[in-house]
Simulated assay, not measured.
Amino acid sequence: MKAYIKAFVLPSLFMVAIISQVTAQTRRTTTTNRTVKTTRTNTAKVETTKSSATKRIPNTRVTYKTPKRKVVSVRTLPNRTVITHRGQNYYYSNNKYYTQSRGRYIVIAPKVGFRVHVLPTQYTRVRFNTFNYYNAQGVFYVQVNNEYEVVDPEIGTIVYELPDDYEKVIIDGLTYYEYANILYEKVQINGARAYEVVGIIDMEYK
């Protein structure tokens, strides 16, 4: 009888113990792998959502809080300078750009690609990552050789003031600030109010 126990029962118990241990390890491994997969999936979703919400926004998703855009216009421009860009005349005066319509001059933000040899006065330097911007009245410039070119700022760029004629807009139920098709979100930095670039309105979207 003792010989039977040694020959058959003890090896069987040993095999059961090994199988149980392997099964437990397999369960732990499976659980760990599932946890990692879930974490990575959730992270990817967050990054994708953030990326799609903070780049180019179709103008069809944008609702302005006021039914009409703010229009700043004057009848005359003292000491104006005429600058032509892609067939369009810009009139520079009082640190602003204007376009002419029906005998009046209407404030306009120059388009991306617009270049000048001299920056508007009262500009501020804005640094973000490796970019050095010059911001004047809500328009961003970068230096290209001996000229300054209007560009869209990178997402995350911070400014501390917006032009007086900015607009409030709603996108997916959230309120943002818009000027020259640049979207800003109000933030707090070291207790001070600031505005962070979160997107660009794509006016060519159809």
Rank of each mutant, 00 (worst) to 15 (best):
T43V: 12
N95L: 02
G103I: 11
T84N: 15
I83T: 12
R61A: 00
S52T: 09
T38Q: 05
Q100M: 12
K68N: 07
Y64A: 05
V107E: 11
K50N: 14
T54R: 14
I83D: 14
R104H: 10
I108K: 13
T39F: 02
N79L: 12
R86I: 06
R102E: 15
V72C: 09
N95Y: 01
H85T: 09
E47D: 05
V46T: 15
T84D: 14
V74E: 03
V62F: 04
R75Y: 13
T35A: 14
T43G: 03
S52P: 01
T81V: 15
K55N: 13
I57K: 01
S93Y: 00
T60E: 03
K50C: 08
V46L: 10
L77A: 10
S93L: 03
T81D: 14
K68D: 09
Q100G: 10
T84P: 11
V36W: 05
R80H: 12
T66D: 14
V46E: 03
S73L: 02
Y98G: 01
R61F: 05
K45W: 03
P67E: 00
S101C: 13
N95S: 09
S73H: 07
K70P: 01
Y92M: 06
K45D: 01
K45S: 04
K70M: 00
L77K: 07
V82C: 12
T38C: 03
S101T: 13
T43D: 02
Y98I: 05
K70S: 03
V46I: 11
V74A: 03
S51P: 06
K68W: 02
G87A: 01
T81Y: 07
V36G: 02
Y92Q: 02
I57N: 03
Q88K: 08
R104D: 03
N42G: 04
Y90D: 08
T49P: 10
T38I: 13
I83G: 09
N42C: 00
K96C: 07
N94L: 02
K65P: 02
N59C: 06
T49G: 11
T41E: 14
S101D: 14
K50Q: 14
T60Y: 05
Y91K: 10
K96Q: 15
K96E: 08
Y97S: 15
Y92N: 04
I106E: 15
S52M: 01
L77F: 06
V72D: 10
Q100S: 14
R69M: 08
P78D: 15
E47Y: 08
Y105W: 09
T99R: 15
H85E: 10
S93G: 04
Y105G: 05
V74Y: 08
V71L: 01
Y91R: 11
N95W: 03
R34M: 00
G87P: 04
N59D: 08
T60R: 06
V74L: 06
T49M: 10
R75F: 13
K37C: 08
Y97I: 05
T38K: 11
T76H: 14
V74N: 01
Y91G: 13
K37Q: 13
T41W: 06
P58R: 00
T60M: 00
V72S: 05
T39E: 06
R56W: 13
R56P: 03
Y98R: 01
T76K: 11
H85Q: 10
R69D: 09
Y64K: 12
R69C: 07
T39Y: 04
T43L: 07
R102A: 15
